[in-house]
């Protein structure tokens, strides 16, 4: 196994595309190293992106934020601007693992590991995040909901590296929230995750985006759920419609972490709770 530390995303992309054997990018390593130790992957080449200048920084501009691929969960949690703008996303990122994991785990790693249960992914989708992808030849930008194609599968082609995640500056009176269900208080994988962002106008939901995690092979965007909220002040009827739309959008599996029935049911429950938090964060009064 060889280990490389490229100085730019482009160089990393070049290394990956030239490699004949199994090559893996290493961000925080909290997924990759676990798989390596369990013998699930046997890399010939590990390309560590953490030495790339500025890749561990969060850049703020008038348009929003650009979060480098090596920015850890704890750095996200300490960023006041990001926390004020997208508190739901920051909470989702900070739910990952424990203090030790937070020191390492990244949004990009969470996304590219392509687990259906990844916590930050629904929150990124709800916030309208985009992945900035660098290939050996060209760059492209892809909405986060288009990156994951199935469990363990992404849209990245050989040689492509995600350099950063970009987040828009939230419009006025926007709020987001992410809730997940786990049997314990931490160190668990989401049984259900629900992310909601809402924009209000005169106390009424004007725009909404709802994304679910852990209830289908990939995170799912639920337009029907968003429609249920738009035009409402989150009255009981709207919330019931929201819950029903979320439950209907679930296509989960029965496994050791939860049953189909349970996941479907709890998706609706959490959606109602997340919607209320997002609504209040947007300045709404319940």
């Amino acid at each position: 196994m060889r280990y490389a530390t490229p100085a730019s995303a482009k160089e990393a992309a070049g290394m990956l595309s030239k490699e004949r054997g199994a090559a893996f990018l290493l961000a925080g390593g909290t997924d990759l190293l676990v798989k390596l130790k369990m013998g699930m992957v046997e890399p010939d080449l590990v390309v560590d992106i953490k030495r790339i200048p500025k890749i561990d920084q969060i850049q703020t501009s008038a348009k929003g934020f650009v979060i480098g691929a090596a920015v850890s969960g704890s750095m996200i949690g300490q960023h006041k601007g990001l926390k004020a703008a997208w508190p739901g996303l920051v909470e989702a990122a900070n739910l990952i693992g424990s203090d030790q994991i937070q020191g390492r785990a990244t949004l990009v790693g969470n996304l590219c590991n392509a687990s259906p249960a990844a916590d930050s992914v629904p929150a990124m989708i709800a916030a309208g995040a985009k992945a900035i992808i660098v290939g050996p030849q060209k760059r492209r930008t892809v909405p986060v909901e288009k990156v994951v194609l199935g469990p363990g599968k992404t849209c990245l082609s050989k040689g492509e590296v995600i350099e950063a995640i970009s987040l828009p500056k939230p419009e006025a009176r926007t709020g987001d929230a992410y809730l997940r269900f786990i049997p314990r208080t931490e160190m668990d994988i989401a049984v259900v995750g629900v992310a909601i962002s809402l924009k209000l106008e005169r106390g009424v939901a004007k725009k909404a985006k709802v994304a679910l995690g852990a209830v289908a092979p990939t995170a799912v965007v639920v337009p029907g759920a968003a429609r249920a909220l738009v035009g409402s002040k989150l009255d009981e009827a709207a919330l019931e419609k929201l819950a029903a739309a979320c439950s209907a959008a679930c296509n989960p599996i029965d496994d050791k972490r939860g049953t189909v029935e349970y996941r479907t049911r709890v998706a609706g429950v959490l959606a109602k709770r997340a919607a209320k938090i997002a609504f209040q964060r947007a300045g709404g009064v319940l």
Partner: peptide
């Protein structure tokens, strides 16, 4: 056995 590890064999963590 489906859950031979501490991720899915859930002993309480401190905060529980």
């Amino acid at each position: 056995l489906q859950n031979p590890g501490f991720l899915d064999y859930r002993i309480p963590v401190c905060s529980d």
